[in-house]
Amino acid sequence: MKSGLSTKLLSAAALVVCLALAGFVSYYASGSPDGLNKVAADHGFDSAEKESAAADSPLSGYTADGVDDPRLSGAVAGAVGVVVVLVVAGGLAFAVRRKHHQPDQG
């Protein structure tokens, strides 16, 4: 009843895609302000912004402290983020999953 790629192969492929997007493709992303920042700047409420309490994080601003090369710095930050989110969200999903029960029909 298995159709197409095995779950293991699909998971591995998906992880490679995530790491490639966050670690490599992100370098070529648009550097223009996003919708919210653009509106804030255009209408003068960007000055209301306060520095985040997490601004001292070694990964703040999607750059890794201590890595000078900007491409590598962004790649490290992106890859760490992918792994952290994968482990936390995956772990949470395993923790709350219903055991020995067929999931709802969507």
Partner: peptide
Amino acid sequence: PMAGLVAAFIFATQMLN
């Protein structure tokens, strides 16, 4: 595991302005 991968994919894709 899909939930973990979907979250990781969204994190990665949110970096792509």
